[in-house]
């Protein structure tokens, strides 16, 4: 969502250099109209929804709809489940997101290493989890995590370590979800990193080698700086994706045990579509939106260079 908006900004920045014509508006018109109808309008409607208590009673009789102002937000902030869900989501984004980026970067570097063989084969292998259906994968992982018959516990026992109730222990359930999510998603970032690595000109490495740089120094002073735009893009997309954590806990744990894996989107889904508290669910959605917007701003601040910001400053 955010990336699309930025892409749009980049286009308009470039377009500003050329004179505008009504013909341009005609070409853009249908797309803009569709965007207004299917994006802007629903978002505005959801904002209105979030200040009402739209629920089953309102569905039966519109007269029982009450405008409650910010009461949904107040109730949300007073709800310990919301804070747990928020903490879970942030934990997942921080730990899972970081792990995912590091694993994909490491994987891409390994694939790029001169010694690596059968690169495209491994790239395909690593990308496979990304294209498999999450529900099917989650069911397989549920078996892997099974306390009695699970492969993971069998491995632990073979090493003489105690078996764990991976999805049943509140302290282990979120790490278990993170494990699945990292495995499922790192292939996507890996392919992006691999492409970016291939785009780094060989002459930079040659120059570094002439200056006597070791492999580690080449990584630190050539590879990582050259990857910076890619990294900021990957971090941003991963952060946004992680904040929308839903399907993994929905299939694996239903948010349990207790609230240990309840994410914000899962909370929103339950409130909106299981209990039909659409007003309250819309409030959750806007809190999530604020969170994603904040994460984007922070990512831009910390990584400085972003796809669009650099162009504008230049």
């Amino acid at each position: 969502m955010v990336a699309r908006a930025e892409g749009g900004a980049a286009l308009s920045a470039r377009a500003a250099a050329r004179p505008r014509t009504p013909a341009g508006l005609l070409f853009a018109g249908p797309a803009l109209a569709a965007l207004a109808l299917f994006f802007v309008l629903p978002v505005a409607a959801a904002l209105l929804l979030s200040v009402t208590d739209f629920d089953l009673y309102a569905l039966a009789d519109p007269a029982s709809l009450r405008v409650v102002g910010l009461a949904n937000y107040a109730r949300l902030l007073a709800d310990p489940t919301f804070w747990t869900a928020l903490a879970n989501t942030l934990t997942f984004a921080a730990v899972g997101g970081t792990l995912s980026v590091l694993v994909s970067l490491g994987g891409a570097l390994l694939l790029q290493a001169p010694l690596a063989r059968a690169r495209s084969f491994f790239r395909t292998i690593y990308f496979l989890p990304v294209v498999t259906t999450l529900v099917a994968v989650a069911i397989v992982w549920r078996f892997l995590y099974h306390p009695r018959i699970g492969l993971l516990n069998r491995a632990l026992e073979a090493l003489g370590l105690p078996a764990q109730d991976w999805l049943g222990d509140p302290a282990l359930a979120m790490p278990a979800i993170i494990g699945l999510a990292v495995w499922k998603n790192f292939g996507f970032n890996l392919v992006i990193f691999a492409a970016a690595l291939q785009a780094i000109p060989e002459r930079l490495y040659e120059a570094a080698r002439l200056d006597g740089a070791t492999g580690l120094q080449q990584l630190r002073h050539v590879t990582l700086p050259m990857l910076r735009p890619t990294t900021s893009f990957v971090v941003l997309m991963t952060a946004i994706g992680s904040l929308q954590l839903f399907a993994e806990p929905y299939v694996m744990t239903q948010g349990g045990p207790g609230d240990a894996t309840r994410s914000l989107v899962l909370l929103m889904y339950e409130q909106g579509f299981r209990w039909w508290n659409l007003g309250f669910a819309a409030a959750v959605a806007f809190v999530l939106f604020a969170l994603v917007a904040l994460a984007t701003l922070l990512a831009r601040r910390f990584f400085g260079v972003t796809l669009v910001g650099a162009e504008r400053k230049a």
Binding site: R142, L167, Q254, G256, P257
Partner: peptide, 19 residues
């Protein structure tokens, strides 16, 4: 057992195995 409903992998196997 303190087992969650989501962790029941195969009820019939477990019942047959005497879990």
């Amino acid at each position: 057992a303190k087992t969650g409903v989501a962790q029941l992998a195969n009820l019939h196997q477990d019942f047959a195995a005497g879990a």
